[in-house]
């Protein structure tokens, strides 16, 4: 190996290490702070304690906002999976002009600034007479989740061999049965990956949700940011640790179901 190649290998190793340490730092720090006794985020913590977790139970508004976020994410992901899969089938199977523009259009909410989309929706919904915050959240979040489903299911479908369905029918399957037994299992990894990322994107969304909240309806990120701005103490670290745990759980499940490398496909 020439010195240059050795240097290139060394650079790769350094980059790998830097990446792992750099990317894990915020998560590790959050977890460490949440179990520390210090209220001013001293690290390493002078003593371990669970006081911030006890505080969690008494923090008003946190639980309702978590429930709102989960409901909105579940609803919008379900709707997106249905609409997105149908649309992807049309785009892959159909022979009509403008298919590329349609798929670009459907993925475009991912590429535009969330804040701008949120403002446009706020004014549009107002003009249409939709004033209820909760209903607006449900409707708006489908726009956030749909691109993830369309992008991933479209990719999976373009690799799917549709003659398999004909084969199943030749072997005596009814058409709906053939779809259920052949197409759905083939698309399952795409449903899981896109469903997970869509759900997380909805749970995490701030710039669109902020325009559809009122005193009673707040999503978790909105409530958390408000709390951070009002009283910055490790209570937020405690709830963040819960969310990190949830992410680890989701990762383990989807690793078992589709594999980590599949998740990294972009």
């Amino acid at each position: 190996m020439t010195p240059l190649e050795t240097a290139a290998r060394a650079l790769m190793w350094v980059a790998a290490l830097v990446t792992v340490v750099f990317l894990m730092t915020p998560l590790v720090v959050t977890v460490a702070v949440s179990f520390g006794s210090s209220s001013v985020f001293t690290l390493p913590p002078p003593d371990w304690s669970l006081r911030w977790y006890q505080r969690l139970a008494n923090t008003r508004g946190l639980l309702p906002s978590l429930v709102t976020s989960l409901e909105v994410a579940a609803f919008s992901t379900a709707v997106a999976l249905a609409l997105g899969t149908l649309c992807a089938i049309a785009l892959v199977r159909g022979r009509f002009p403008g298919r590329d523009s349609i798929s670009t259009f459907l993925v475009s909410p991912l590429m535009l600034p969330g804040l701008v989309v949120g403002i446009a929706m706020l004014q549009g919904f107002k003009a249409a007479g939709l004033r209820d915050a909760y209903a607006s959240l449900l409707v708006a979040h489908v726009v956030i989740t749909l691109p993830y489903v369309v992008r991933t299911v479209l990719g999976a479908l373009s690799l799917f061999d549709f003659s398999l369905i004909d084969a199943a029918r030749t072997l005596g399957c009814s058409y709906p049965m053939a779809l259920l037994r052949v197409l759905v299992p083939a698309l399952a990894p795409a449903f899981i990956t896109s469903g997970m990322f869509a759900f997380l994107a909805s749970m995490d969304n701030y710039p669109i949700s902020i325009f559809f909240t009122d005193a009673w309806t707040k999503t978790l990120p909105i409530q958390m940011l408000q709390y951070v701005e009002e009283n910055p103490d490790p209570t937020i670290a405690a709830i963040s640790t819960g969310l990190v745990l949830l992410a680890i759980l989701a990762l383990i499940v989807s690793d078992r179901l589709v594999g980590l490398r599949k998740l990294a496909e972009f």
Binding site: T19, L23, L27, T30, R261, L263
Partner: peptide, 19 residues
């Protein structure tokens, strides 16, 4: 590396910015 990349992606931006 995959865990270090995908795990933070699954955690919200408010959590990370707060960290």
């Amino acid at each position: 590396m995959l865990v270090a990349i995908i795990l933070p992606l699954s955690v919200g931006v408010v959590v990370k910015a707060f960290a």
